[in-house]
């Protein structure tokens, strides 16, 4: 009776109906808009297939923007991983009082979300030409950091600001991973005569390596897609690829509209690769640290 085709179809429909609204939403508002961009990147204005849009990505102006975004992301992710790792190790294995941990994690949770426009304002108020620290250094120590070559609205200034949320995110991810290092490993290493440094170099770091590299990829993608902080901080003096695309969409740049598709497609490829790397490495790191 239950094998009648009508009822089995109904049963199948009954099983799937609960996620149909979600799937419709996902197709309509995530997959199709993205597919629209990807397909558009390979179409000319009449809808025919073309590689001209892609070829135009290699114009020096756009290449320079992509390269700038990649450099900012690499540097801010690299510095975030490095400094975050050192601070996390100091707090969890460096003999600091354990009660520092919880406040640091709570604060990191806030700082990781304190991005965008307000973050740029905070740094301008602190290290801008009239910023708190700029003036303090000038009045107390007679050091004028701006005449010494420092400029917040620059490549390194931008990286220094990005480091705020990158470092916070790194701490949020790596502190639990450091807790996963088993005490037995360190004891075993010590029994075998390893020094502290040898333990880190030959046991802890290899175990943590996938987690570190994976977090690096995540931070890279995090910074690569960012725009609000950079726009509020530097205007358009640092022409990141996101700022270029934003101007293109707004219509501030009057030229071939197809180029926007190509830029967006290039961005999807880059963040897609970074995230794929993150997912693969996270799985690998969970083999040891759970």
């Amino acid at each position: 009776m239950s094998t009648a085709p009508g009822s089995s179809i109904r049963r199948l429909a009954g099983t799937w109906i609960g996620i149909v609204p979600f799937l419709i939403f996902a197709v309509l508002f995530i997959l199709m808009p993205t597919a629209n961009i990807v397909i558009g990147a390979f179409q000319d204005t009449d809808g025919g297939f073309t590689l001209t849009n892609m070829a135009r990505l290699f114009e020096p102006r756009l290449m320079a923007s992509f390269w700038l975004s990649i450099k900012v992301s690499l540097m801010s992710a690299g510095l975030g991983v490095l400094t975050g790792f050192l601070i996390a190790v100091a707090v969890s294995h460096g003999g600091l009082p354990p009660r520092l941990r919880a406040p640091l994690l709570t604060f990191s949770g806030v700082a990781a979300n304190f991005a965008g426009v307000p973050l740029a304002f905070a740094f301008i108020a602190t290290l801008g030409r009239l910023g708190f620290i700029t003036i303090l250094l000038k009045e107390w120590l007679g050091i004028n950091i701006y005449s010494a070559g420092f400029n917040l609205i620059s490549f390194w200034g931008l990286i220094f600001v990005y480091l705020y949320f990158q470092l916070a995110l790194m701490l949020l991810i790596i502190m639990p991973a450091l807790d996963g290092l088993k005490k037995e490993w360190r004891e075993a290493a010590e029994v075998l005569g390893a020094t502290h440094l040898q333990y880190w170099r030959m046991v802890a770091l290899p175990v943590l390596f996938p987690a570190l590299l994976g977090t690096f990829a995540l931070l890279f993608a995090n910074s690569f897609g960012a725009i609000a902080t950079a726009q509020a901080l530097t205007g358009s003096s640092q022409s990141l690829i996101t700022i270029q695309l934003f101007a293109q969409i707004r219509g501030d740049v009057l030229q071939d509209p197809r180029i926007g598709y190509a830029i967006a497609f290039g961005m999807i490829v880059i963040t897609g690769l970074a995230n794929a790397l993150y997912i693969v490495l996270r799985q690998r790191s969970e083999k040891w640290i759970k």
Partner: peptide, 24 residues
Amino acid sequence: VVEFITLLPLVIPVIVIAFGYIRM
């Protein structure tokens, strides 16, 4: 599958999703 879809907004930059909306 569902989890993968929910993570897509982290993979695709916000500006690209917004661009897709404007076009679509």
